[in-house]
Design a binder for these strands. Structure first.
Length: 840
RNA sequence: GGGUGAUUAGCUCAGUUGGCUAGAGCAUCUCGUUUACACCGAGAGGGUCGGGGGUUCGAGUCCCUCAUCACCCACCA
């Protein structure tokens, strides 16, 4: 077998993935402890971005690791219909054709978007294969699959039957551009410069006026009260009186409510229950009328003076301020900075509007979730996210699950056309009208919020309550980005507990974002988005996954750095060449024997790696595990053991170590490790992907330590030869048996002419070993080195003094753990020995 | 307004419960083609761990405080 000098990922990756699929490598093996991850479904309509590459990489590392460890492993892929997101994209396309969603019925729009998504759906499946994701494609789930829709309906029905669903006219966050309501969490608050207008509302009895302060004067058309704090001495006398609202001349009461902040503005607030969440609450408490003056298109409407009708909110504000000023009502205008809610998609200012919507009563769902979280039923990485989630759940308001869009799961509810309060649950959502008990009902045109159906994702994908559910629920891990901790993770926990009685997953891992190279957010409009596919083309899939995983800890945002990808590409090439080298050696014997100090040392290192790496991956420390592997492969294996092997090869052991290290690297670099595995002549027909995690052989500790000593002798010899510009150097030593046994290895590694034992002699002494070794370089040729030695002498003396001081400290010796103290003693001994060596 | 996290080498970041002389990659400098790899090898330089205070035998690690930055949440009209 002749392998090229450099690993070329593009030449192998597609074939390797096809091989895995052909041999069903990613199907759960049906035995062993279960380990399941259901992948967060990416938007079916969009290309996979670099953030999904990170998700895919982390989940795949976890899945492949646990599969190798012998667990019954399932990695389940899916795709999201991404209701609102996708409809927005589709509407943009319609706009280009000069059309809009209003040109079509709901059914037409739905089927058009279905086709639109279908066009793109194949893309990301190809992309996930290129990322090397070891998922079971036979279980692929789309969020509009029948089982997901049925699950959403069953859950809705359960909530309905148990009285946790209510329909109510509530204030919702309404985007007047998109024509739909949003959950609180979908509203983005931004600090904006505005004004605070002071308006003098005249008292009806003519005894003066009360001054209210507002940032939104146009809503005064819908005012139904003025509120003051009950304890406010300035206003006590006004409570119970009425004012005559300017412009509309309606008479409204002055009420007392504790929500009023006496310090803010004038201490008197106009109350507009139909257009402000606070005022809505006040309105309910005081039984005030709710007068809507803004419609769903963001225009002034309703019971208002004819001249204002049809104005946009902004234009209406200007006109009303102007009119109020003419009447002398505006007594003051201040600059004022305040937060304003915007649509997260189009940035339109969100209007709180009164709408009939479906709501879920959340506290009955949140309480069990809070309890489970506090009882540590779910491990969070990082830990802080759990408390963050608890705080969120404790303050959770009821959830508006109605969306006024076409692309989504229709809400299975019908309204009696004669009695508006008579609503029934029915799943015949393809009918607009149905007859029940001789009465006619009309379907609610709204669809569910995407998060409503995806809250059931962990058990719906597993066919609750059927077989996969029994095998794999709760999931081992939910891995996702921090932005959906609240909208998704929290809801999966609440509904998982509500429907199945169990938390949906044992652990949650939150990854940070992949930022642009300069640390800013990636965004299409800025144009700093990194597309993963060209990177894979250039460097290979393994390189991208390792490059993006390296140095990244849970929930920490980090810039994409192509140098990390290059480093990982080099790592793949290193593995490739290690394998090439080992493959070029022909074994003298097939028998596995552990002989030299180097053999024991590499086994010892390998064993440490296995333990360290398992520990890291069990705790989802992806980056630390990668670093351990990298250093073992590069420093220990390639730079030391392979180099030592050139003097004295132990081929059976080299093969064994290679097999073990390939297996352990496989989760991080599945393609290159499998490619190597398939090309090695002695690995048979097996797949690395479905092999067993290695059980490394044990190396003898004492001989391993001897090799450490050899390493430091070699390093120092290299250094001395280099700084002294010496050549043809011989290393002499007295009375160190293992140096004799390793003379050939040492000579080769250090580039020495020979390594010899002698009784006595003179030259440049090594200072990094406690043994008596010297190089046959005349001291006379080493004047500048003497200075270095002198400095070192000083430093060592200082260190000895410090160590002695520490040991002289009674408190230290008494209180510090024994092993630390004895460690200090050893250090002192070593330093003293070094000092002797330097002096010589 | 509330909360969380960050601040360690020129750059990007590790540093698990306090305990070897604080690490890595990249970058820099010097040398090098010998049985894999120049996507390589050998060697070197570089940090008073944001400032100040405290607890401790011992602090990058724990506490207080200040500064700067980032993110999340929130109905002060």
């Amino acid at each position: 077998m002749e392998l090229p000098k450099n690993y070329d990922p593009a030449a192998y990756e597609a074939d390797i993935y096809a091989l895995w699929e052909k041999l069903d490598a990613f199907k759960p093996k049906g035995k062993g402890e279960p380990y399941a991850i259901v992948m967060p479904p990416p938007n079916a309509n969009a290309n996979l971005h670099i953030g999904y590459e990170l998700t895919a990489a982390l989940e795949d590392i976890a899945a492949r690791y646990n599969r190798l460890k012998g667990k019954n492993t399932l990695l389940l892929p899916g795709a999201d219909h991404a209701g609102f997101e996708t409809q927005v994209v589709y509407e943009k396309r319609l706009a280009k054709e000069g059309k809009s969603r209003f040109d079509f019925s709901r059914e037409e729009l739905y089927s058009q978007i279905w086709d639109f998504v279908a066009e793109n759906r194949g893309n990301f499946e190809t992309q996930m294969r290129r990322m090397g994701v070891s998922c079971d494609w036979s279980r692929f789930t789309f969020t509009l699959d029948e089982k997901i829709i049925n699950r959403a309906y069953t859950t809705f029905k359960k909530l309905w039957d148990e009285g946790l669903i209510y329909r109510g006219e509530r204030l919702v966050n309404f985007c007047t551009f998109h024509g739909t309501a949003f959950a609180d969490i979908e509203v983005v608050h931004k600090l904006e410069k505005g004004h605070l207008w002071h308006l003098d509302y005249p008292l009806t009895d003519g005894s003066g006026h009360i001054t209210v302060a507002t940032t939104r004067p146009e809503t005064m058309l819908g005012d139904t009260a003025v509120a003051v704090h009950p304890e406010d001495e300035r206003y006590k006398k006004f409570i119970g009186k009425t004012v005559k609202l300017p412009l509309t001349k309606r008479e409204i009461p002055i009420i007392a409510d504790e929500f009023v902040d006496r310090e803010f503005g004038t201490g008197a607030v106009k109350i507009t229950p139909a257009h402000d969440p606070n005022d809505f609450e006040v309105g309910k408490r005081h039984d005030l009328p709710f007068i809507s003056v803004i419609d769903h298109q963001g225009k002034l409407a309703g019971e208002i003076p004819e001249i204002y009708r049809g104005f946009t909110v902004e234009a209406g504000r200007d006109q009303i301020v102007k009119d109020l000023e003419e009447q002398g009502i505006v007594s003051k205008v201040e600059d004022h900075e305040h937060n304003v809610g915007h649509c997260y998609k189009c940035n339109t200012i969100i209007q709180p509007l009164l709408r009939d919507q479906w709501f879920v009563d959340m506290q009955p769902l949140a309480q069990p979730a809070i309890k489970a979280l506090k009882a540590d039923k779910i491990t969070f990485y990082p830990d802080t996210k759990r408390d963050q989630l608890v705080r969120y759940l404790e303050g959770l308001h009821d959830w508006n699950i109605s969306r006024q869009i076409a692309w989504g799961i229709p809400i299975p509810a019908f309204q009696n056309i004669d009695e508006p309060d008579d609503w029934i649950y029915d799943e015949r959502v393809s009918e607009e009208f149905i007859e029940v008990n001789g009465k006619t009902y009309r379907r609610d045109p709204d669809v569910f919020d995407t998060w409503f159906s995806s809250s059931s994702w962990p058990y719906a994908t597993l066919n609750y309550p059927e077989q996969d559910f029994k095998d794999f629920y709760p999931l081992a891990l939910m891995e996702t980005g921090g932005e959906i901790l609240y909208p998704w993770v929290s809801r999966m926990i609440m509904l998982g507990l509500y429907v199945t009685g169990k938390v949906p997953f044992e652990a949650v891992y939150i990854h940070g974002y992949v930022m642009a190279e300069d640390g800013s957010k990636m965004s299409k409009s800025v144009g700093n988005v990194v597309d993963p596919l060209p990177v894979i083309d250039q460097y290979g899939s393994d390189a991208l996954r390792m490059g993006i995983t390296a140095g990244r800890s849970a929930a920490v945002n980090r810039g994409y750095d192509v140098r990390r990808v290059e480093e990982a590409r080099n790592f793949c090439n290193k593995l490739w060449n290690i394998a090439r080298f080992i493959e070029s050696l022909k074994p003298a014997t097939e028998q596995l024997k552990v002989e030299t100090a180097a053999d024991h040392w590499i086994l010892h290192k390998l064993q440490q790696l296995e333990q360290g790496l398992s520990g890291d991956l069990d705790e989802y420390r992806f980056s630390e595990g990668y670093e351990k592997l990298y250093h073992f492969v590069w420093d220990d294996l390639a730079d030391w053991y392979l180099e030592a092997s050139k003097a004295q090869p132990n081929v059976p052991l080299l093969r064994r170590v290679l097999a073990d290290v390939l297996t352990m690297t496989h989760p991080y670099a599945p393609f290159v490790t499998e490619t190597i595995w398939q090309t090695l002549e002695w690995t048979g027909d097996s797949l690395l992907a479905t092999s067993d995690w290695p059980k490394p052989l044990k190396g003898d500790r004492k001989q391993a330590d001897e090799f450490e000593e050899i390493k430091s002798i070699v390093s120092e010899s290299r250094y001395l030869i280099k700084v002294l510009g010496a050549s043809d150097v011989t290393l002499y030593y007295t009375d160190v048996p293992f140096l004799g046994a390793n003379a050939g290895i040492i000579a080769r590694l250090a580039g020495l002419q020979a390594v010899k034992e002698v009784r006595d002699g003179d030259g440049v002494y090594l200072t990094h070993t406690r043994y008596r070794c010297w190089l046959d370089i005349a001291m006379s040729a080493t004047r500048q080195y003497a200075e270095t030695l002198a400095e070192k002498h000083q430093a060592t003396e200082k260190r000895i003094a410090s160590l002695e001081g520490r040991l002289a400290n009674k408190a230290y010796v008494d209180q510090a753990p024994k092993h630390i103290v004895s460690q200090t003693k050893d250090q002192l001994k070593e330093a003293q020995a070094q000092l002797v060596a330097i002096t010589e």
